[in-house]
């Protein structure tokens, strides 16, 4: 067994599942939003904040945010272990990606609750 230093689940199968499940959630979320835009041609602020006031929508959005962060993390981790052969550069790149993902997630949650 090859030791996995910083992959998400420390198991290739787990990462693989995470990628698939998060992809499905993201696809559903994007399709839902697209459908919403099509169904509501003249969108007002009231419509928009009403949509996100719904608890189901909040949960759906949080799920999409978590999916986005984990999907991006597993993907970027994989890319970095393929192409970045210098340990320090790889560590910095992974740290940067992890940081960005974390900030986006916290930021997203704040926006969601601030609405």
């Amino acid at each position: 067994m090859v030791a996995s230093v910083t992959s998400l689940g420390r198991s290739g199968l787990y990462d693989w599942m995470v990628q698939r499940v998060s992809a499905v959630i993201l696809a559903a979320y994007v399709l839902f939003l697209l459908g919403y835009f099509v169904a509501t041609p003249d969108l007002t602020y009231a419509d928009w904040s009403g949509l996100f006031a719904n608890t189901c929508m909040k949960i759906f959005t949080i799920m999409a945010l978590v999916s986005l962060s984990t999907h991006a993390w597993v993907g970027m981790w994989t890319i970095s272990t393929d192409y970045l052969k210098n340990g320090v550069v790889r560590f910095l790149f992974q740290g940067f990606c992890g940081g960005v993902m974390f900030v986006y997630f916290v930021w997203g949650v704040q926006i969601l609750w601030g609405l």
Binding site: M1, V2, A3, S7, S11, G12, W16
Partner: peptide, 12 residues
């Protein structure tokens, strides 16, 4: 199978 279940051996 246990020996293959890491992020590299199979899943690359």
């Amino acid at each position: 199978l246990a020996d293959l279940d890491d992020p590299f051996s199979v899943f690359r």
